[in-house]
């Protein structure tokens, strides 16, 4: 045993010309693989990102801000925010409820339920929109009734909210289920034993424990909600200034050859994506930190 300890303390790689460890690659392999990885990521990730901002600013800063401040562009920003503000909280409530019943109890059909929650991720965005047309469209199940009562869902804001809710459905739940399963229920049992009721236990014990996982799910859910294109495209009807979300407005401007306008709105979405990545990294770091502290206790 003592021999092993000394050998790790000496750190053989610090010695010049020392043989490589079994887990180390020769220097040329390291350089080659790092080069390939960096080249691949630069080509497929950095170049498209640079293209968005480069094209948006091609006619100068003035044209950029004129495009961003356009009335239709602002209307699309507003609609995107509305869709996210309804669908994200709805999926948060669902995610917490689903994680509570799946992680805290055992019942038959639990693994089937967990699989069904992931189902929307396996559905093509276009089909996610189509199925709501089949239910609420003029030809759909509820179509005649809706027309009779003058309720518009498809080609209107409610359809956009529904399609957005569908494509972002699993994000919060799939973050919380494994987290709450790993945390167990001991702290909740203790709270109940000490006389807390169910809601008090949830707000004061469970929620503080899951807050980072919840925030992580919300960040991912929100990014997808604001950026969804295919599903929303099917149900929106593309009415300028009324049923255009930001990604749809990008498409319209692009197809009208208004490239500066399209890339200017696209650049706002790219900034949103970058902010999402930064927040996600921070939460991952805090989460890992909290985890380590909890274990240290």
């Amino acid at each position: 045993m003592a021999v092993v300890v000394t050998s790790t303390l000496v750190k053989p790689r610090a010695l010049a010309g020392a043989p490589l460890r079994a887990t180390q690659d020769p220097r040329w392999v390291r350089w080659l693989l790092t080069g390939i990885a960096l080249g691949f990521l630069a080509f497929f990730l950095l170049l498209p990102l640079a293209a968005v901002f480069g094209e948006a600013l091609r006619r100068g800063v003035g044209a950029y801000f004129a495009a961003v401040g356009d009335a239709d562009a602002l209307a699309s920003v507003k609609l995107t925010l509305i869709a996210a503000l309804i669908s994200v909280p709805a999926n948060v409530v669902f995610g917490v409820a689903a994680a509570w019943c799946i992680a805290k109890y055992s019942f038959r059909g639990k693994s089937l339920l967990t699989t069904l929650i992931d189902l929307p991720f396996a559905v093509s965005p276009v089909i996610s929109g189509l199925i709501y047309v089949l239910v609420f469209g003029a030809q759909g199940w509820l179509g005649p009734w809706l027309i009779e009562h003058d309720v518009k869902i498809i080609f209107a804001v409610p359809g956009i909210v529904l399609a957005t809710t569908f494509v972002t459905f699993p994000f919060v739940a799939r973050e919380l289920i494994p987290l709450m399963q790993a945390q167990g229920s001991e702290e909740e049992y203790a709270a109940i034993t000490l006389g807390a009721n169910g809601w008090q236990t949830f707000w004061r014990v469970t929620l503080p424990n899951i807050k980072w996982g919840l925030l992580y799910g919300v960040i991912l859910c929100n990014a997808r909600a604001m950026g969804e294109f295919g599903a929303v495209s099917v149900v929106s009807g593309h009415i300028r200034g009324e049923t255009n979300t930001m990604p749809l407005h990008v498409e319209i401007l692009y197809n009208e050859y208004n490239f500066v306008g399209a890339f200017a709105v696209a650049s706002l979405l790219a900034v949103l994506a970058l902010v999402t990545l930064v927040l996600k990294s921070i939460v991952e770091w805090r989460h890992a930190h909290a985890h380590v502290q909890a274990h240290a206790r």
């Binding site: 990730l45 969804e228 295919g230 990008v250 890339f263």
Partner: peptide
């Protein structure tokens, strides 16, 4: 940055790649 394709709206990726 590896997660960029998850975070970047697909329409934005589409027009950027075309550009």
């Amino acid at each position: 940055l590896v997660d960029l394709p998850f975070a970047l709206p697909t329409a934005v990726a589409g027009i950027a790649l075309t550009a």
